[in-house]
Design a protein around this nucleic acid. Structure first.
Lengths: 163, 163
DNA sequence: TATTGTTATACTCTATAACTATA
DNA sequence: TATAGTTATAGAGTATAACAATA
């Protein structure tokens, strides 16, 4: 966490004269400590920061990674299908694909069956980058598993997947 | 989720002529189904959306709620302490407090001990709004607990709090 | 009429840097 | 020098609305 543990800390960070402040209170999260949403948010921020750091050499955001993964696993799908699957706005996907296409990682081909649709696919470069990204993402996941413990990691994945 | 279940769905949503598309593929999440970060993100979005909906009558965002809770539980704390506790930028907290102060919910008083600091506190109105917000947030939490099951809810809270 | 991809707009969040006043 | 609060800016993410082409 950035940082759940550190967040709950001395109000007076032990500077030269800590007795200066009248009340050296410990900061209390109050009812937040019973709110799952608060901890989910903190955890999500930590996980994304770690993911971004580990994939920085490929310059891929979590959103871009998820787009490449789903196109790679479903060659020929449409933008609407992809947007719905990932729960992102169609409008945002357009900009994401513009950038990925400009980098030469993805292509939009005309759909043979429906003139309105684009059939999405990875380029050869896109496949290469995705393969490397998957390895880095697996390292990220391993670090997460070590931090949580294998059993907790399994429980979390199972619980949230079913949600 | 908006919607994890619905996200994994038919590529061709059973329109009039589903046989039009050459391949009626089921959209596959690929390696994303093994990525905890993906599901944490999806869950966090669902939880925030539910929270925002339930507190819409008070016009309080999750961030504003957390600010009120922590000020209420630590009267007199400084902006830096609050920002560090919640893991938000000092600069962003300034704008959050501007709005809350303009709504008459919070106050920034000069700190007696340190001329640079502000001592934060809730107004009487702020305390009233916070009390109502806490009730709505408890209802949100109850809904979440029902959706997850009490045991899973407990496990998640424990795991993420320790993270 | 409805859907797909697109553009445009606005608002929030995040990440910085720089400034002031105080220490 | 360093810290607390502030302002400003730029980049993402989110939420809409509207449009052209197609169904």
């Amino acid at each position: 966490m950035p940082d759940a543990k550190h967040a709950i800390k001395r109000a007076v960070p032990l500077r030269k004269t800590p007795q200066k402040r009248t009340s050296a209170l410990i900061i209390d999260l109050g009812v937040l400590s019973e709110r799952l949403g608060y901890f989910i948010r903190r955890t999500q921020l930590w996980v994304f920061q770690d993911f971004i750091r580990r994939l920085s050499s490929l310059d891929l955001s979590p959103a871009e990674f998820s787009v490449l993964v789903v196109i790679g696993a479903n060659t020929g799908l449409s933008q609407s299908e992809l947007a719905t699957t990932l729960g992102i706005e169609r409008a945002r996907l357009v900009r994401l694909l513009h950038r990925l296409e400009k980098r030469g990682l993805t292509q939009r081909l005309p759909s043979s069956a429906d003139g309105r649709r684009h059939a999405l696919r990875l380029t050869a470069d896109g496949q290469k980058i995705l393969a490397r990204a998957k390895m880095l993402a697996a390292q990220h996941e391993a670090a997460l598993k070590e931090k949580l413990g294998a059993e907790r990691h399994r429980l979390l994945l199972e619980s949230l997947r079913a949600f």
